[in-house]
Simulated scan of single mutants.
Amino acid sequence: MNIQLLANVIGHEKGKKILINAFQNNKLSHSYILSGPKGIGKYLLAVEFSKTLLNNKSRQASPDLMVIQSTTENKKHSSININEIQELESFLRFTSANNSYRIGIVDGVEYMNYSAANALLKILEEPGNKTIIF
Protein backbone atom coordinates (compact mmCIF):
# COMPACT_ATOMS: atom_id res chain seq x y z
CA MET A 1 0.00 0.00 0.00
CA ASN A 2 1.24 3.46 -0.86
CA ILE A 3 1.17 4.95 2.62
CA GLN A 4 2.46 8.28 1.32
CA LEU A 5 -1.06 9.22 0.25
CA LEU A 6 -2.08 9.14 3.89
CA ALA A 7 0.62 11.70 4.63
CA ASN A 8 -1.95 14.34 3.57
CA VAL A 9 -3.94 13.47 6.69
CA ILE A 10 -2.63 15.33 9.72
CA GLY A 11 -3.31 13.55 13.00
CA HIS A 12 -5.57 10.51 13.20
CA GLU A 13 -2.48 8.40 13.87
CA LYS A 14 -4.46 5.68 15.63
CA GLY A 15 -7.05 5.54 12.83
CA LYS A 16 -4.37 5.47 10.12
CA LYS A 17 -2.53 2.70 11.95
CA ILE A 18 -5.70 0.61 12.28
CA LEU A 19 -6.57 0.99 8.59
CA ILE A 20 -3.04 0.34 7.34
CA ASN A 21 -2.58 -2.72 9.58
CA ALA A 22 -5.95 -4.13 8.50
CA PHE A 23 -4.97 -3.74 4.86
CA GLN A 24 -1.48 -5.17 5.27
CA ASN A 25 -2.86 -8.20 7.15
CA ASN A 26 -5.67 -8.68 4.62
CA LYS A 27 -8.28 -8.10 7.34
CA LEU A 28 -10.19 -5.06 6.14
CA SER A 29 -13.65 -4.80 7.62
CA HIS A 30 -16.69 -3.96 5.50
CA SER A 31 -17.36 -0.80 7.51
CA TYR A 32 -15.62 1.78 9.65
CA ILE A 33 -16.99 4.53 11.87
CA LEU A 34 -14.83 7.64 12.05
CA SER A 35 -16.11 9.71 14.93
CA GLY A 36 -15.20 12.98 16.55
CA PRO A 37 -15.98 16.68 16.40
CA LYS A 38 -16.87 18.29 13.09
CA GLY A 39 -13.95 19.56 11.05
CA ILE A 40 -11.12 17.36 12.39
CA GLY A 41 -10.46 15.50 9.14
CA LYS A 42 -12.53 12.32 9.37
CA TYR A 43 -13.79 12.79 5.81
CA LEU A 44 -10.27 13.47 4.54
CA LEU A 45 -9.00 10.27 6.18
CA ALA A 46 -11.79 8.24 4.55
CA VAL A 47 -11.16 9.79 1.12
CA GLU A 48 -7.39 9.45 1.23
CA PHE A 49 -7.54 5.84 2.44
CA SER A 50 -10.11 5.05 -0.25
CA LYS A 51 -7.92 6.61 -2.93
CA THR A 52 -5.01 4.52 -1.67
CA LEU A 53 -7.06 1.31 -1.76
CA LEU A 54 -8.31 2.11 -5.24
CA ASN A 55 -4.80 3.10 -6.37
CA ASN A 56 -6.18 6.46 -7.47
CA LYS A 57 -3.49 9.12 -7.20
CA SER A 58 -5.35 11.71 -9.23
CA ARG A 59 -7.98 14.23 -8.17
CA GLN A 60 -10.45 12.67 -10.61
CA ALA A 61 -13.42 10.79 -9.25
CA SER A 62 -13.04 7.03 -9.10
CA PRO A 63 -15.79 4.87 -10.60
CA ASP A 64 -15.49 2.67 -7.49
CA LEU A 65 -16.04 5.43 -4.91
CA MET A 66 -19.37 7.03 -4.03
CA VAL A 67 -19.67 9.89 -1.54
CA ILE A 68 -22.88 11.04 0.11
CA GLN A 69 -22.61 14.31 2.01
CA SER A 70 -25.06 16.29 4.05
CA THR A 71 -25.81 19.69 2.60
CA THR A 72 -27.21 21.41 5.66
CA GLU A 73 -25.81 22.59 8.92
CA ASN A 74 -29.29 22.82 10.44
CA LYS A 75 -29.46 19.90 12.87
CA LYS A 76 -33.26 20.14 13.04
CA HIS A 77 -33.63 18.89 9.45
CA SER A 78 -32.20 15.80 7.82
CA SER A 79 -30.43 16.29 4.55
CA ILE A 80 -29.52 12.68 3.75
CA ASN A 81 -32.63 10.83 2.67
CA ILE A 82 -33.51 7.25 1.84
CA ASN A 83 -33.14 7.83 -1.92
CA GLU A 84 -29.47 8.68 -1.50
CA ILE A 85 -28.85 5.58 0.63
CA GLN A 86 -30.71 3.43 -1.91
CA GLU A 87 -28.43 4.83 -4.63
CA LEU A 88 -25.47 3.81 -2.48
CA GLU A 89 -26.90 0.32 -2.10
CA SER A 90 -27.27 -0.02 -5.88
CA PHE A 91 -23.76 1.33 -6.41
CA LEU A 92 -22.24 -1.16 -3.98
CA ARG A 93 -23.93 -4.12 -5.69
CA PHE A 94 -21.99 -3.61 -8.93
CA THR A 95 -18.57 -5.14 -9.36
CA SER A 96 -15.54 -2.93 -9.28
CA ALA A 97 -14.22 -1.37 -12.47
CA ASN A 98 -10.68 -2.49 -11.58
CA ASN A 99 -11.50 -5.74 -9.77
CA SER A 100 -10.82 -3.83 -6.58
CA TYR A 101 -13.01 -2.48 -3.80
CA ARG A 102 -16.30 -0.61 -4.01
CA ILE A 103 -16.27 2.12 -1.39
CA GLY A 104 -19.06 4.30 -0.03
CA ILE A 105 -18.49 7.29 2.22
CA VAL A 106 -21.45 8.75 4.11
CA ASP A 107 -20.33 12.10 5.49
CA GLY A 108 -22.76 13.41 8.07
CA VAL A 109 -24.70 10.34 9.17
CA GLU A 110 -26.16 12.43 11.98
CA TYR A 111 -28.20 14.22 9.28
CA MET A 112 -29.89 11.05 7.99
CA ASN A 113 -33.60 10.68 8.50
CA TYR A 114 -35.06 7.56 10.10
CA SER A 115 -35.73 5.78 6.80
CA ALA A 116 -32.23 6.51 5.49
CA ALA A 117 -30.67 5.21 8.71
CA ASN A 118 -32.65 1.96 8.47
CA ALA A 119 -31.65 1.54 4.81
CA LEU A 120 -27.98 2.04 5.75
CA LEU A 121 -28.28 -0.57 8.52
CA LYS A 122 -29.64 -3.03 5.97
CA ILE A 123 -26.58 -2.44 3.75
CA LEU A 124 -24.29 -2.96 6.74
CA GLU A 125 -26.01 -6.24 7.62
CA GLU A 126 -25.42 -7.72 4.17
CA PRO A 127 -22.30 -6.20 2.65
CA GLY A 128 -21.08 -7.30 -0.75
CA ASN A 129 -17.66 -8.72 -1.46
CA LYS A 130 -14.86 -6.16 -1.39
CA THR A 131 -17.24 -3.48 -0.10
CA ILE A 132 -16.17 -0.85 2.42
CA ILE A 133 -18.38 1.84 3.95
CA PHE A 134 -17.08 4.79 5.96
Rank of each mutant, 00 (worst) to 15 (best):
K38Y: 13
K75Y: 09
E126N: 02
K51H: 11
S96I: 12
K122N: 03
K38N: 14
K57G: 07
H12D: 06
K75C: 08
E89H: 12
I80R: 03
L44E: 14
H30E: 01
L88K: 04
N99E: 10
N21R: 08
L121A: 04
E126D: 01
L121R: 06
I105N: 02
A46V: 02
N98P: 00
K51A: 05
A119R: 03
T131H: 02
L54W: 09
S115P: 02
L45C: 05
K14H: 14
A7G: 07
D107A: 15
T95M: 05
L121E: 00
S79R: 14
I18L: 08
E89K: 15
F134D: 02
K27Q: 13
I123H: 00
I68N: 02
T131E: 03
N56K: 05
P127D: 02
F23V: 05
Y43Q: 11
L121P: 03
Q60R: 13
A97F: 10
G128I: 03
R59T: 15
N74S: 13
N99H: 11
N56Q: 10
L34F: 15
I18N: 00
E125P: 10
I82W: 00
N81I: 10
E125H: 07
I20Y: 00
S58L: 10
G36D: 09
L45A: 04
N8V: 06
E125Y: 08
T71V: 15
N81L: 13
A97K: 08
S79T: 15
Q60P: 00
V67D: 10
E125M: 06
N129V: 09
L5T: 04
K42N: 11
N83A: 15
V9M: 11
Y43A: 14
S78Y: 10
A117P: 05
E13G: 09
K51Y: 06
N21A: 09
I3N: 05
S115N: 15
Y114T: 14
S78Q: 09
N55R: 08
A61Q: 11
A119H: 01
L88M: 13
H77E: 14
L28N: 08
A119K: 05
G41N: 04
I68L: 14
L65D: 04
D64M: 10
I132H: 00
Q60V: 08
N113L: 09
S90D: 10
D107G: 07
N21F: 00
V67T: 13
A22S: 08
I68S: 05
Q69M: 10
I10A: 10
R93I: 10
N8R: 12
G39D: 12
A22F: 06
G128A: 08
I40V: 14
K38L: 13
